[in-house]
Nucleic acid binder design. Structure first.
Lengths: 420, 420
DNA sequence: TGCATTTGTGCCGCTACTCAACAAAATACC
DNA sequence: GGTATTTTGTTGAGTAGCGGCACAAATGCA
């Protein structure tokens, strides 16, 4: 690209040469970057295993695809393997893959039971995650410092260059201020500036690293879209429940739909059973209290131990449903509620695929026919739509999603990986 | 642009010259078209009144903006007026406006009481609309032929070149097949291929004209976003009810969010009052039966005359609310239901603006404090979100929206206006 | 052993921009 | 009223990114 020299050289009016003139606005730096980003995204998510597929996916000439692949290889991000790629007539195409020793990002996650960190390269593969309990304090600053330090140890132990860090948190995060609105499991006050606090913590442990923070369900959706059950979907609705309440996320054309301030897909307030259980919001039968692990436990009459994770206790109920009629009835009831909630979302969002995580994944496995049927029945154009409902496919969707978030700037502009 | 010659010259293998070679895929034709489209869109929606604003909105250099403006002027789409544009220091910028004698499109609309057609230039201004009752037959082919013929008369009477035609229909339309799913007011069977039928009708009356068909609420939302109360919103939620049922639409970053098959924003099935009126869907208290004109009439105990449009009758109830306690109570009740429905959408979509049309516009005028308050109360992050709720600003939003739809291909690629 | 088919590559050209310098048109200040 | 300052329009040179083309390479099939 053109040499733009040093930006923002504060030329005071006095010392300014008369004939000298600067553009009214700094032209958008991200224009003309062209197809490098889309190409890397295709290889990253495994949708371009060969150069010829890349050519057709990008809708460019073979010459252009070759130049792009060569540049990504020069950046150390992609490995081009000229060995034949197997069957078919004609000359076999070169294989494209993520460069094995390429840069990594630091993915981190806060959840009800602790925190996790892992390194992640391109391609959606995680390194061995480190899981730790939360420090006894609830002070966000201290928690995030512990996360950053655990991450820094991972980074120091790896020979690969680290380009960024991102954190998944179990609360909505505002786009504008990066504030956590309802970090219930963490006992944080509403409005905690988690984005800034994480940035500060990482700046202490790993200076210079760009950071980002987002909601865990949103990130899991992104991960499922790129590397899991949502791969290839144009409009992916992801719904999950791992502890209390129900989280949703929507991926449209490969991008998260976070709404105007990151608060979209707060689906827990959908009414799914007008005569149902009371909800903290004041009404009855909200999805939040009818389709999460506590709802399933309550319907089955099970009281979990105080130290037992709610998700594990609820999974036990689903497993018991194969022989225990009480558990079966509980599962059936929650499946009806979940289906009604999903139908409500489908009427508004019209996704072409639904992926379920958390306890919903188990419920789908226990009612693989009934759950999609409920959705279709209660959905306005059920028969014409017929949305497929799939189980999530990733082992650690939240961590993988955090990695996606950290990778995003470099997927948008692969050249910038060279800067660090 | 490059000369691509005649497309699809079916070179049979036999007659193919050995050294001759065609690209694996036809490269995307719309790449490299650059900023002409965005520039025209800015001028079209009034967001670039001068060349200097265009420069900063496009984030290009003055030279580029000048070249773009000159090209749009050469295409006969934009008028550049070099006269000064008023106040401020420095040299005044040239004014940019839609060319007065430029091309037009044909906008058409089917509604409960008839059909309308109008010509529309760039800039969102409609010519005088022609309103007609529906032919006595319910045969879609015949209805659409009448529409096309009325349109053809308008086109013939105008000296301006017509580039395309689009139709707004009061039913969801599938993206894939262009089929009407629930044209209740028109007595059309579900699945009527309205896109193809309209194309055929227009081909008969105005050969060669490109056509398009979409849902009326969606198009009204698009129109409000570009020329009305939604101008400048990033995520615009539009909700309206002109006859029976409630229609919604979402505009994200200037594009309609139609979902994977055009069926998004079917918001009528949201439960807003669990103990409310029965709905054809089998449940109670759906938005469709609680916040449309018949709901308001029923709450007020009014039975409209058989020939009276439902919207007008409902408007009379809202007007009566200032002095009639029964009407006031009816309005209050429907306002609560509408607010609950809007809150449900806000929780899922997190728009930064809501615009109301149809009877909802009157309800907002009658309860300008209460309606936004209900939304905020029932919305999960009400206080932090505080979504503004505004009345629609256009006189004929559906027709204006149909014009937007017809213009869209030319806004995306202004060069193609020269082809016709 | 050819031949059709598919892919990789180098070279040329075009397009849509940026950059840089200058000219023009207004306001602000003395 | 004249001059400096600010903002804008204009022109010409330069360039990144991509398409078009011709040819070479690598496979399967007859």
């Amino acid at each position: 690209m053109q040499n733009r020299g040093v930006p923002h050289t504060t030329t005071s009016p006095a010392q300014r040469v008369p004939g000298r003139d600067r553009p009214a606005v700094r032209p958008a730096l991200d224009r003309g970057r062209g197809l490098l980003g889309p190409a890397l995204a295709l290889i990253h998510s495994g949708r371009a295993p060969t150069r010829s597929v890349l050519t057709s996916e990008l809708a460019v000439t073979r010459a252009t695809a070759g130049a792009i692949a060569a540049e990504l290889e020069a950046l150390g991000l992609v490995a081009v393997d000229p060995r034949p790629s197997g069957s078919g007539r004609g000359r076999p195409s070169h294989r494209l893959a993520v460069a094995p020793g390429g840069p990594v990002v630091l993915a981190a996650q806060l959840h009800a039971d602790g925190f996790s960190v892992a390194l992640a390269g391109l391609g959606g593969t995680l390194g061995e995650p480190v899981d730790r309990p939360l420090p006894r304090t609830a002070d966000p600053e201290e928690v995030l410092r512990a996360v950053a330090e655990a991450g820094a140890r991972l980074v120091a132990a790896s020979p690969r260059r680290c380009l960024g860090a991102a954190l998944a948190v179990p609360t909505p995060v505002t786009d504008s201020g990066g504030r956590a609105l309802a970090a219930m499991y963490l006992d944080w006050p509403s409005g905690t500036p988690v984005r800034d606090l994480f940035a500060a913590a990482v700046a202490g442990a790993l200076p210079g690293l760009p950071t980002a923070v987002a909601n865990d369900a949103n990130l899991a959706a992104l991960a499922e879209h790129r590397h899991g059950a949502g791969c290839g979907a144009r409009h992916l609705l992801y719904v999950t429940s791992g502890h209390r309440g129900v989280g949703g996320a929507l991926v449209v054309d490969g991008r998260l739909h976070t709404g105007s301030d990151g608060l979209a897909l707060e689906v827990g307030q959908l009414t799914v059973d007008p005569g149902g259980r009371p909800c903290p919001c004041g009404r009855r039968g909200c999805l939040d209290v009818e389709a999460d692990p506590p709802a399933l436990l309550a319907a089955a009459g099970v009281t979990p131990g105080p130290a037992e994770p709610l998700l594990e206790a609820a999974r036990a109920v689903v497993r018991a449903a194969s022989h225990d009629p009480v558990a079966r009835a509980a599962v059936d009831r929650v499946v009806e509620c979940l289906g009604a909630g999903l139908a409500g979302m489908v009427n508004i969002l019209n996704p072409d695929r639904i992926v379920l995580g958390g306890i919903h994944l188990d419920l789908l496995a226990a009612a693989p026919e009934r759950l999609p049927a409920v959705v279709a029945e209660r959905c306005l154009w059920g028969r014409s739509a017929g949305v497929p409902v799939l189980p999530a496919a990733l082992e650690r969707p939240d961590l993988t999603g955090a990695a996606e978030l950290a990778w995003q700037p470099f997927l948008d502009d692969p050249q910038s990986t060279a800067a660090g």
